[in-house]
Design a protein around this nucleic acid. Structure first.
Length: 465
RNA sequence: GUCCCUAUCGUCUAGAGGCCUAGGACACAACCCUUUCACGGUUGGUACCGGGGUUCGAAUCCCCGUGGGGACGCCA
């Protein structure tokens, strides 16, 4: 049984990089009929917040990434960690270290100054025949892992291929702080073991942690899962994602008018490919997903392509669903919906013209809010030669039956013919008068959305209503 | 500084030694469609980081540079 996990630390929102990690981990489990576990790594008590936990949960739900177990909170597993640490202390794979943090800083600084890799000097590491210093009074020790001194830790990375790191490069890392709270690398190892994780799919900022975790797992006599390290996502500007460079919550994409299926499709395609396929459903993604086609190098986020995908999914989306998504947006704009036109009908006509929901809201609002036609646009299109035709149109509007686009189109054409005008001559002033905009869908369809009365009402500024 | 990872159009990518005169998508440009703007259609330009090998043959394998990224915490 394949079991994967997504293990964020609740120190901030779920950003796009984390979302992709979750997505790939989820997809791997789902593709193989395995299980996906959500684990909250909250051992950094100072920075973890319940708001962040909620933000992660919200993000996962919005994306539709369901998990079979969890959320499992590490802070609730303290007893287990402490028991393991005790065992390691007893078996000699861990030891107490009394070096003060300030002293550590001094040593590291000196090492750096010499061009060395900063590392713990192993003062308190027990060795046969070595006499340890006397523990100073009143100092609460940390617990360190007794990392092997030589040899290499190697694994066949699922996305990057074989990676080998010398044990000589590794430190005797702290596995429990002075306050007894265990640290990341240790908890991950214990959890992955306890939770029977078979495949660890995570960001490649963890490549350097992998040998440490493997060593701990080995010391524990635990099986070693397979590891796959995903490259990171760079911002739109090619810079590392940060607050300054587009690191925003996935929920921000919701607010910005993106559909989850568009974000999902975009993320799936960022750093993973299935031939030339660009647009695919989550079902297809689950079916196709594999680790062999993941790009090992970093990928730059491209908002324009996301927009393109979102426009596609907007066009595909059900009108009723879009109307429901739009209603609160319109309310936020201070727009009160009317009986006519129905939001669904407007959406049906406009959804293929925009790439985001906020743009759709902006287009749609003119159907419900009073209009003040732009004088410049009016001057441009409400030309003297168009006026008679417009008047004609207004006068005959009550004859139109049924009140639908084809009949309206017939009347428009009639008026054009009678006054020997071309379509734009009449369509443009109608657009501006009815919607305040110069760009709209086909004018007959737009007119059909309104009632006859509203049309006449809106034609009044032209003096023909 | 040390260690690790990485490198195909502006961007995301296809590419597992001959199918590559390097394909697709976004973006861009032109044209077509047209009732404005979109959509759609057609066409076009733009890329294998550099240098050495290996091989009959290299975008693909190896080495060295260079660029980019990551890590070096009582953060995760």
């Amino acid at each position: 049984m394949i079991r994967t996990r997504f293990a964020p630390s609740p120190t901030g929102f779920l950003h796009i990089g984390g979302a992709r990690t979750a997505l790939f981990s989820w997809a791997y489990a789902r593709h193989h009929g395995g299980e996906f576990i959500l684990r909250i790594e909250d051992t950094d008590v100072a920075r973890s917040t319940s708001e962040a936990v909620q933000a992660i949960l919200d993000g996962m739900r919005w994306l539709g990434l369901d998990y079979d177990e969890g959320p499992i909170y590490q802070m609730r597993r303290m007893d287990r960690y402490k028991a393991v640490i005790r065992e390691m202390l007893e078996s000699g794979s861990a030891y107490y270290c009394y070096t003060a943090p300030e002293e550590l800083d001094r040593v590291r600084e000196a090492q750096r100054a010499q061009g060395l890799k900063p590392r713990y000097d192993r003062t308190w590491r027990p060795e046969t025949g070595k006499t340890l210093p006397k523990p100073p009074d009143g100092v609460r020790p940390v617990v360190r892992f007794r990392n092997p001194l030589d040899g290499v830790v190697a694994w066949d990375d699922l996305v990057k291929g074989s990676i080998a790191i010398d044990n000589a490069e590794l430190d005797d890392l702290v596995i429990a702080r002075a306050d007894l709270v265990p640290t990341y690398n240790f908890c991950v190892a214990v959890d992955d073991w306890d939770m029977n994780i078979t495949h660890v799919i995570r960001g490649d900022d963890h490549v350097n942690n992998t040998p440490r975790q493997i060593n701990i797992l080995k010391a524990l006599g635990a099986p070693i899962p397979r590891y796959g390290h995903l490259s990171m996502i760079l911002g739109d500007d090619g810079q590392k994602l940060s607050k300054r460079h587009g690191a925003v919550s996935v929920m921000q994409y919701d607010e910005n008018g993106y559909l989850p299926e568009a974000v999902l499709n975009y993320l799936a395609r960022l750093g993973w490919s299935h031939g030339d396929d660009e647009i695919f459903s989550m079902e297809q993604f689950r079916e196709w997903f594999d680790l062999d086609h993941i790009t090992p190098s970093a990928a730059q986020f491209n908002t324009e392509k996301l927009d393109w995908l979102n426009a596609h999914y907007l066009r595909e989306a059900d009108n009723m669903r879009l109307a429901a998504l739009l209603a609160p947006r319109l309310a936020a704009l201070g727009v009160t919906l009317l009986q006519t036109p129905s939001l669904e009908a407007v959406v049906a006509l406009y959804k293929e013209r925009v790439s985001r929901l906020d743009q759709l809201a902006d287009e749609v609002k003119v159907f419900y809010a009073p209009l003040e036609p732009d004088p410049d646009a009016l001057a441009r299109h409400l030309t003297p030669d168009a006026l008679p035709a417009l008047k004609d149109f207004a006068a005959r509007i009550l004859e139109v039956d049924p009140w639908d686009a084809p009949s309206i189109n017939a009347l428009v054409k009639d008026c054009l013919k009678a006054h020997k005008l071309k379509m734009p001559k009449l369509a443009m002033p109608l657009r501006v008068l009815l919607t305040g905009r110069e760009h709209t869908p086909s004018i007959d369809g737009v007119i059909a959305l309104f009632s006859r009365e509203t049309v006449l009402e809106r034609l009044k500024p032209a003096g023909v209503g």
